[in-house]
Amino acid sequence: MTAAPLLTVRNLQAWYGRAHILMGVDLQVDRGEVVALMGRNGAGKTTTMKAVMGLLDARAGSVTFDGRDVSALPPHRIARHGLGYVPEDRRVFTDLTVEENLEVGRQPPRPGAPAWTPERLYALFPNLAEMRGRRGGRMSGGEQQMLTLARTLMGNPSLVLLDEPSEGLAPRIVQQMAEAVRTLKAEGLSILLSEQNLSFAGAVADRACVIEKGRIRFDGPMRTLLDDEDARRAYLAV
């Protein structure tokens, strides 16, 4: 039998104030898959992530995660079902130490998802191991990005929503980030990441969904998008 997708989003709509941002987004993520949600700024990538995570009040449509309808649940309930969220603006708890940041994310292990401990995460992100007692506010942007991801992993999620992981990072840190994403995929984690950086997305994702004006315009293997210059030009203007 074919396993049902881990995440299925159908006809997702969302509003900011009176502005209608998402006009019916459909996408899915299979178990173990890395999907890149691509698109111009303002196309609705971040809004899609927030709406899936339950962080927007004004939303409609269905979100099914791991066999459950989560579209009406508050964020903390969604998170407890094993959906992790890494925001684009990092939002590290600046007053808390690295260890305490990880503690906030901690949830019980979940069958069918990789199980994380602080020690395993320090092995994955050696930078963090050297600064366990440092406060989040005293870390560089790249270190904060690593911490945010590690913090979310402490919840032992089966799927992580990774919003713009390469944004605002120096090229060297972007390479480290891509490395981390590939490692996580090898651990069996599913990832939905939003990206504008085609080379980053191309390096880590199996499949690409291109969003434009609140709707998905392209959904296919990453390879296809990379090879199809017309599609890239039409959707991403590169």
Binding site: N41, G168, Q196
Partner: peptide, 13 residues
């Protein structure tokens, strides 16, 4: 200061 941060490649150009 980072005039194109947060924009899509086409918009940046």
């Amino acid at each position: 200061d980072e005039p194109t941060a947060g924009m899509a490649p086409g918009e940046r150009q």
